[in-house]
Structures are given as C-alpha cells and as structure tokens.
Write a protein that binds this DNA or RNA. Structure first.
Lengths: 152, 152
DNA sequence: AATCAATAGGTGTATATACATATAAAATAA
DNA sequence: TTATTTTATATGTATATACACCTATTGATT
C-alpha cells in the first residue's frame, strides 16, 4: 500500500521526509503482523526478541546488559521483560559468581521449545507475504545503513 | 552503522529477514532522535504526530477516528493522547452537533505555535543528519512499499 | 414506534518505552 | 584500608501500545 493511502495524506516536504514516515509506518506494520502471530504463544514482540538473543548464545548464559546491547530497541527495560519470561518459566535467573552485581539469564527447555514453534510459525507467515527479491533486500539494507550513517 | 554492530550478531537467516530487523532498528533510531528533540517542547512523538495531523486540516476540526486513521501507528489510543494535549491546552475538544457521538478536536493557537517551533527544530536536526540523495530516498520509498504489497 | 445492530469515543488492564533514581557490588583512588 | 567512583541491575513514574469492554448515540429492521 502506498504511504499516501496508509496515512491519508500527500503532504510530504521531501522524499527523505516521506522515507522517514515510510520506515516508521513499515516498522509498525511488520510489528503488528508479528505480534498477532506471537499472541498464540502468549509472547510479546520484545519477549520473543529476548528469547532469540538467549538462544543465539545457548547453552551459554547472558547477563542483562549483554541482552540489552543486542535488543532492537535499545531503551527496552530488559529486567522487566525478563520478569515476565521468568514467571512463565521460559528463562532462569542466577546471580553471577564472578561478579555478584550481574544476573545471568538462561533460556529453559520450555523456552527453547516455545521459541522453536513460534519461529516456525513466523517464518511461514513471513514467507507467505514475501514480495521483494534477495537483490532488493540487499539494496534496502544498503539504503537503511546509509541513512543511519550519522550514528548519534 | 552496520546492523551487525547495532545488534551484535550476524546470524541472519536471509537478506529479507535482515531487512526486517534493519527496518525495525532504523525506526527505533529515528524515533529516538526525534523524541530527544521533542523533549525540549514537552511533547512525545505521538503527541507531535497528532498535532501535525490537526494542523494539516486547520482551521477545520477532525474527529477522533479521522485522527486515528492518519496515525503512523494505527493502534494508538487517540483519546488518551488527546487527554494529555488538552491538559496542556494545545488542543480543544467539542462535541459534534450533527452527531453527538463524535468529539471534534481543534488545535489551539498555542498548539500551532509549539508545533511550528518544534517542527523547525526537527527539520534542522534531520537536515544535519541527512545522508541519502533524493534518488535514494525515492528508491527506499519504492522498496518499502513493495515490501508492504501484501497488505493485511 | 420499539427493538436491535452498528458506530464513536471513553475507560480498564497488561505490557512496553523512556528515563530517573536507588541499591549493591566492584574497581579505583586516597 | 577506607573512601570514592563506577558499574550492573532493579525499581518508580509518565506515557504509549494493544486490545477488550462499556456507554451513548445513531441507523436500520421489524
């Protein structure tokens, strides 16, 4: 869908400004599709993100700040997200022996299992709505990274 | 910055999946820059979005659902965002005469004024971090809209 | 006209963001 | 060693998202 129709306006001050809004809208669009699927697994987008990060290092543990560094949204409140995951027994907290300030997080068997089935469902959904070629995806990645060149 | 460095991983299952994460991360990056500037005006990203929408139709009023339809994030809780703006006297609520279910929202002089100064500040910041050409912005818009072709 | 369904907006709840602050532990300086 | 600073995490608060539900009003159906 054209951005004009998604936002019911065609008042864009420039192509670059339109691109900004287009990125924000597309991010919302992607998130809403993902969240809808994750609901069946009683997971939020962010809880899923944390589980994926933990699986990436499994069977190693990760401390809270190392998870935070890998989050898509850097201002995520990781301890609180871990709270919810811990209640559902999808992760486990232990205090680090070497540095007692650190909390080490491990994904549980149950966490791995729910991550596997939810990822499989998400992959199917993403494949079914896939419209861009690999070359286009590469170009998109190039443009987004160029856009962020002035990292703050 | 490369996505690999932003997320401290290089485990992407495909260019398309990487593009998805790249869009989400770029959206967060853009929002955080904008929000930081808007803080000086005691505005959130979403409050600013509502003010812009209202200005687009000024001096006409807009009802809540027409604002909601124009929001970037469609699941925004518009009545609540208007609550905060109303407290700050940046917008005004009136009940529609023709349909008493509808609440009509108008931006106030004060709202227009704060919108003008904040927009001017944002434009400056955006110009200072601008790294892509108009042609690249067009291409980005094309790719994002192609990505969303399967609108749900 | 009376009833029922649809619509608009408001409100409630769980979770998240964004950011400030608190607390405990570790690292550094005096 | 003691005091100070830094670091890691947790917690508090305001606002937002996501979604369910409530109420008033309108429109449609009988």
């Amino acid at each position: 869908m054209k951005l004009e129709n998604a936002l019911l306006t065609n008042k864009f001050s420039s192509e670059a400004q339109k691109a900004t809004l287009n990125i924000l809208y597309t991010a919302w669009w992607l998130k809403s599709i993902t969240s809808k699927e994750l609901k069946d697994f009683d997971l939020t987008h962010e809880q899923y993100n944390v589980l994926r990060i933990l699986k990436g290092k499994y069977p190693n543990e990760l401390c809270v700040k190392d998870i935070a560094r890998r989050m898509i949204e850097k201002s995520s409140n990781v301890p609180r997200i871990i709270d919810r995951l811990e209640i559902k027994k999808l992760v486990k907290r232990t205090v680090s022996e070497s540095d007692k300030r650190e909390t080490l997080i491990t994904i549980t068997k149950s966490g791995l299992s729910i991550l596997e089935s939810s990822t499989s469902k998400l992959n199917k959904v993403h494949a079914s709505i896939q419209t861009i070629t690999q070359k286009e995806a590469e170009q998109l990645n190039y443009l987004l990274e160029k856009l962020r060149a002035t990292e703050v």
